[in-house]
């Protein structure tokens, strides 16, 4: 721990402290603290999973774990430092662009904005990161704007793997207390016993819409409100568009039957983008677009790697 010098507490607890490594004074890292709980359960399970999963992953769109330090009563995760998360990024946009004109950290010399090209770039990076996770049998389970970090060059990285889990076979029911409410998919909300990679894709869809409109798509304040917000916008699902929905534990035949009114969820978005969004917010988890298919979607006309900045356009 003595190798790190703490110099600024990040505004929110999402990624802990900003610190400087003494050995390499130019390297700035983020320290995330996990407290040992001697009274209760010892090392938090979330920290253990986050470390073991992040250790395996190596991808430009996933935050890097640099070191682990065990200090007396704490465990510190040393991670690469990124200036802000997507939530703050959206909030920092000028009011004319739908933001709240919050101040941006000093590191950002130029405003990158969030026009259509930028949304496409973020989406491409997000989908490639998610695709990497899924192809390594890892569910993130906590995708939300706050867990997507952005650096000053506009690179987006997935972070916060505290709720992530490796998919095991045989599939068994995992915890339902996952994914922030606004980004939680209907199959979890309806109490489905099993879920898979499609829960992450629903979150991606909700984040996509939020990037375009600057507003959360389904800001529910309780589980039932969340369900109803989804149903009101997309129509109440039935056996036709979601086979098996009536068998879900929390499905009630008494749910109001809304019809989908708005065919275009995000006004102003190009038609290919609307198609992608619809495919991500598909009710039936089995037919919802996978990360791999989404990377190949024609919204990314030149292939997702063209937009994610991996291959620089000449």
């Amino acid at each position: 721990m003595e190798n790190y010098q703490r110099f600024e507490k990040s505004a929110e607890g999402a990624y802990g402290y900003k610190a400087r490594e003494l050995k390499y004074p130019n390297r700035i890292v983020a320290l995330k603290k996990a407290r040992f709980n001697r009274e209760g359960d010892g090392v938090p399970a979330t920290a253990m999973r986050e470390i073991s999963l992040l250790k395996e992953m190596k991808h430009p769109n996933i935050v890097k774990l640099l070191n682990i330090v065990q200090a007396r009563h704490n465990l510190y995760l040393v991670m690469e430092f990124l200036d802000m998360d997507l939530k703050k990024y959206i909030d920092s946009l000028p009011v004319s662009e739908g933001g709240r004109a919050r101040p941006i950290p000093n590191g950002f010399r130029t405003r990158l904005g969030l026009d259509e090209a930028m949304v496409k770039k973020f989406m491409a990076q997000l989908l490639e990161g998610v695709h990497y996770c899924h192809s390594h049998r890892i569910l993130h389970r906590d995708l939300r704007p706050q867990s997507l970090l952005i650096d000053r060059d506009g690179t987006l990285k997935l972070a916060d793997f505290g709720l992530a889990q490796a998919i095991r076979i045989p599939l068994r029911g995992y915890s339902h207390q996952i994914v922030a409410l606004w980004y939680r998919s209907p199959e979890i909300l309806l109490g489905g016993p099993q879920y898979s990679t499609s829960v992450d894709m629903w979150s991606v869809g909700a984040i996509f819409a939020e990037m375009c409109t600057r507003q959360p798509l389904f800001p529910g304040d309780s589980e039932i409100d969340e369900i109803f917000q989804i149903f009101r916008l997309l129509g109440t699902p039935d056996e036709e568009n979601w086979p098996g929905v009536t068998a879900y534990p929390d499905y009630k035949a008494t749910f109001p039957k809304w019809k989908r009114v708005r065919t275009i969820l995000v006004p102003g978005l190009e038609s290919a983008g609307c198609e992608l969004l619809d495919a991500l917010l598909e009710y039936d988890p089995a037919t919802r677009l996978s990360a791999k298919q989404a990377c190949l979607h024609h919204y990314f006309r030149n292939g997702s790697s063209y937009y994610s900045g991996r291959i620089h356009p000449r």
Binding site: S52, K55, I68, R168
Partner: peptide, 11 residues
């Protein structure tokens, strides 16, 4: 070494 992800024989 925090290598906690183990392939299950059941898989």
């Amino acid at each position: 070494c925090f290598d906690l992800q183990v392939e299950s024989p059941y898989r």
